[in-house]
Design a protein around this nucleic acid. Structure first.
Length: 425
RNA sequence: GGAGAGAUGACCGAGUGGUCGAAGGUGCAUGAUUGGAAAUCAUGUGUACCCGCAAGGGUACCGAGGGUUCGAAUCCCUCUCUCUCCGCCA
């Protein structure tokens, strides 16, 4: 959410943000609702002031004065009761519109519509050239006994899978490697609730737009999170954090659930796009300062890259264009890992700065050194998300005989083994 | 799931219909005192929105939402959360 005063004073920039980010919103509607809201509250507050005046005067009034005052007070109350529903309606409409106003991208963010407009920043590592026909992760995992498809898809539906044997072990190893890396880098590990109330979804910017992307637990009005960013940010909802305590660096680990509502028929093969996965996520709160936020943004990006380096996966980093960044994000980098089975770099990480967008929605504040209150900035980035990360991990390290070499950094988490091989062989 | 207790400002805690944004204490800030500190004394110390160049003014907020009343932190209803006991349970 943006500051309405900021919107009033920078309407042009906000209009541009709406257009460039590709949202369907008429800012004039927002501004009109704001004007209407102020008009109705002014009238209402004047009535309330009169009401307070009268109820203060009544106990002091003499016997003969009293009935007259009570009479007027009753009238004023009736007036207020008539104004209130309209004012509430105007307020509701205003707030609903405010939740749909996107944040303004940082100046360095390229204007563009889709992926093709993202700007590649760097490539690290070279895609391997194979002297045999490489298998994709589906074939590899099948032959290595790492995954079950048929059973899960029968009892749990499309995009379901079960990691088994080395598949499950490898997932745990990768997650643990990521966790340890982040702990070494000063982040606090959190295993948060994965079922949350609507407020957490709205507060982090995933609702109301994108509501259809979340699984709802209707009986209890709860929602399954699509990322631990939701509970980690919400953990501080309504808090006032002392500036001296910032930055707060968290590493969240949780299962994540996504309906993939707009992606029917897309990426249906394998483990690339699934409804349930496990993710280690970095979330940081920092002081409201662009310079500080930028520094942390690159720190988070660096953490993700360090993990990819340990996993010995080639990747590239791209600065996402305006059309590819979300409602609240002011800057986003995507890290795309090389996936031989797709012969392409595909997204495995997403690093975002959100400014005070989430803090405002979640009512998270910071007490600044001068005693004033502000809204902290939030940032987040994937550390590792599995099973998606298993795709480049397995495909890049496969051998001609169908076995997979384990990167050195992973071996301690894999019982000291250096290879995954068919158990039958 | 059953029975009960509770939710007040940064914190503790008073307040059961009227001038209560809310006593008192603690903490914090500033000043006095001191060689310096402690102690002491004095003053100040919430947030959001609206109007205003400002000074300042107004409204709302005592877990949330409704209701009663001229008037609600105080009375009534619903909900949320916390705690205790019983049951169930990984």
């Amino acid at each position: 959410m943006l500051d309405i005063q900021y919107i009033r004073q920078n309407a042009e920039q906000v209009r541009a943000a709406i257009k460039n980010k590709g949202f369907d919103l008429d800012l004039e509607e927002v501004l009109a609702a704001d004007r209407e809201r102020r008009e109705t509250t002014t009238v209402l507050e004047q009535k309330r002031a009169r009401k307070n005046e009268l109820s203060a005067a009544i106990p002091k009034a003499g016997k003969d004065e009293r009935p007259k005052l009570v009479e007027e007070a009753k009238q004023v109350r009736t007036d207020i009761e008539q104004l209130e529903p309209r004012a509430a309606e105007v307020q509701r409409r205003f707030q609903d519109l405010m939740l749909r106003v996107p944040s303004v991208p940082r100046p360095e963010v390229p204007v563009g519509k889709g992926e093709e407009d993202n700007v590649e920043v760097r490539r690290v590592g070279l895609p391997r050239t194979f002297d045999f026909t490489p298998k994709d992760h589906v074939e590899l995992m099948a032959s290595l006994g790492m995954v079950e498809w048929d059973g899960p898809r029968r009892f749990a539906g499309g995009r379901s899978y079960a990691l088994v044997g080395d598949g499950a072990l490898l997932e745990m190893a990768v997650l643990r490697l990521a966790v340890d890396t982040l702990i070494e880098r000063g982040m606090k590990l959190v295993a948060p609730p994965v079922m949350v109330k609507e407020r957490a979804m709205t507060g982090t910017g995933f609702f109301p737009l994108g509501r259809e992307e979340a699984y709802a637990i209707t009986a209890d009005e709860m929602f399954l999170i699509g990322t631990s960013e939701v509970p980690l940010v919400s953990m501080h909802a309504d808090d006032t954090i002392d500036a001296a305590a910032l930055p707060l660096r968290y590493a969240g680990i949780s299962p994540c659930f996504r309906r993939e509502a707009g992606a029917h028929g897309k990426d249906t093969r394998g483990l690339y796009r699934v409804h349930q996965f496990t993710k280690v996520e970095q979330v940081v709160f920092c002081v409201p300062d662009e310079g500080v936020a930028e520094k942390i943004h690159y720190e988070l990006l660096g953490n993700a890259e360090a993990i990819l380096a340990k996993l010995e996966i080639p990747y590239r980093v791209a600065l996402a264009c305006t059309g590819e960044i979300g409602l609240g994000q002011t800057r986003k980098h995507e890290v795309e890992s090389w996936m031989p089975g797709r012969s392409a770099y595909s997204e495995t990480h997403s690093c975002s700065t959100l400014g005070d967008f989430q803090s405002r929605r979640s009512n998270i504040r910071v007490r600044l050194p001068d005693g004033s209150l502000g809204y902290p900035y939030t940032l987040n980035n994937t550390a590792v998300a599995s099973p998606r990360i298993l795709i480049p991990l397995l495909e890049n390290h496969q051998s001609a005989d169908g076995s997979v070499a384990l990167p050195k950094a992973l071996r301690p988490y894999m019982l000291g083994r250096d290879t995954l091989a068919n158990p039958a062989k």
